[in-house]
Nucleic acid binder design. Sequence first.
DNA 1: TTGTAGGCGTTATCAC
DNA 2: GTGATAACGCCTACAA
Lengths: 336, 336
Amino acid sequence: MVKLKDIADTLNVSVGTVSKALRHSHEISDEVTDLIIRTANEMGYIANSSARNLKTNKSYNIGVVFVDKSRAGLGHDYFSTMLNSIRDELSIHGYDFTFVSNVIGENRLSYLNHARYRRCDGVIIVTADFKDQEITELVESEIPVVTIDHVFNNRTAILSDNQEGLRTIVHHLHENGHSKIAFIHGEDTSVTEQRIASFYQACEELGIKVPKDYIKDALYHFPKQAGLKTRELLALKDRPTCIIYPDDYAYMGGLTEIEKHGLKIPEDISVVGYDGIFLSRILRPMLTTYVQNSVEIGKQAVLRLIEQIEKPRSFMAKQVKIGGNLQVGQTVKKIG
Amino acid sequence: MVKLKDIADTLNVSVGTVSKALRHSHEISDEVTDLIIRTANEMGYIANSSARNLKTNKSYNIGVVFVDKSRAGLGHDYFSTMLNSIRDELSIHGYDFTFVSNVIGENRLSYLNHARYRRCDGVIIVTADFKDQEITELVESEIPVVTIDHVFNNRTAILSDNQEGLRTIVHHLHENGHSKIAFIHGEDTSVTEQRIASFYQACEELGIKVPKDYIKDALYHFPKQAGLKTRELLALKDRPTCIIYPDDYAYMGGLTEIEKHGLKIPEDISVVGYDGIFLSRILRPMLTTYVQNSVEIGKQAVLRLIEQIEKPRSFMAKQVKIGGNLQVGQTVKKIG
DNA sequence: TTGTAGGCGTTATCAC
DNA sequence: GTGATAACGCCTACAA
């Protein structure tokens, strides 16, 4: 590995000069700068990030917390697209990222200490158990943190606009004449809370009555369970005319169940998903679903984090809501 | 950030002693070691990886090349599962990883130079354009490299056993009485080459004739195109009784097309996928498909790479083939 | 405009 | 068994 000193030696200048020239310092004359840069390239010089980091106390490395107990995370379009977006945006700004876990080798290391060990300039928490004490510790630490889809006190959060999402869906259904709307929602998280609240609110606004047994509790990304809940809904005396699923994957379970009952979508029953995964556009009938803008969410997370890192004085924590859009497919029938 | 010197000062010992004690050196007495470790914990000491890296020239950081031009990569179960597996296995051995791209900030950096800049101990190439000159450069460099699903000269490669995959599929079809088997394959890569070769070989072994127009060229992960090719196949005078798709996603396109023709799976036509994605198990009829063992592939990639890093002398490059297994679903009809 | 030298936090090689 | 001390490669005052 060629280093500054090697370049300095071959050119008979000092390391300091080389260092400055490579960083385009105005202290160094243009010709010397030119020569040094050319020579550095010829010699294949690559800076040593560790040495630089040690000196400057900046790693240009961001920690990403991505805990997916259920193994659903990375395999889920919502998160994989977001991660891609985060990676791309970081790269544009000269940052890399490392996954921050709480195990590394033999000795456990908390998320915070892992991030400290790698001298991360900041951390993005994409998915995690937000009740975990270690996550709280990380969020409250000296390291700049941005969370996604979860708000912590005085910290920046990027939020998919779930209120708008459910509101849009309910209004769309209402416009299509539906007033018997069932909602199978995901497990208890702040995201779910918001969706449920927004669902009720929109229904109230539109004068839609919601029988208690139209609301079903399920898990995200769990088709089988959504299937079971669908069965319960189909067994009701007063069947809903439409079912809103926790997400597009869960809908797949509902689909199977609906077909088992000999019903057709949307002729016999309408359905709506959430997320807008790749497959929702592929399958026929194309799924009506609310598409979360995961690319923008990832991008904003990066931009807000970098802002916080590079301009700590002027930075103010805030919540950024990112809206999505309704993908109107063929699974909602116009009735009435 | 508390450092060695702080601990040394509070205990009135030297930094050297602290350093050794924390690494359980036998030079230091048990009591002193104990005391130092306790104090370090109390003071919240976390090592500085950059300083350590600078000194030891080991980063415990692995570069991962994951280029997905089509954005399919991370969103694809095969790769996302593999990446998860890589992350987990690395973590067990005390390594982190960083994505290695060829852009970082304003100045382009080749993959190799990016890896060098981050002082990666090794690199795993998960997906990439293997014809790219920069990839070749990386593979031929001084950095230990393991590639996945592609073999380079004298380098370790972990390969999903595509020969076995196609062979298994064809034999399964043959056992179920099929002899008119169409194969829509993916774009031209070494993986595809192997699958095609293996397909022909298995057919030959079993005395199955393969008309030229039973073989169709398509792209992976591209349902629409697979749908078009399906249409061509269905239009043939002598229709195949079964279609093998490039992957499970592509099959979804075929599914739509088949339904459009008013045909039912598997009564009117049988189908087989490849990969064993989450959805293949969810949808009904459950898809018959060859499940690639992406978890094991990721794990082996890590183990072979670490072996190469930590025991360079005894290391020998080799190709490791990882077999999968046939998921027998309900999409292949027993005929004849 | 260029050079010098100290130090970032750690490890490792010597003395003692 | 413990303590100085010299690197590792880079940046940056400050001196020339």
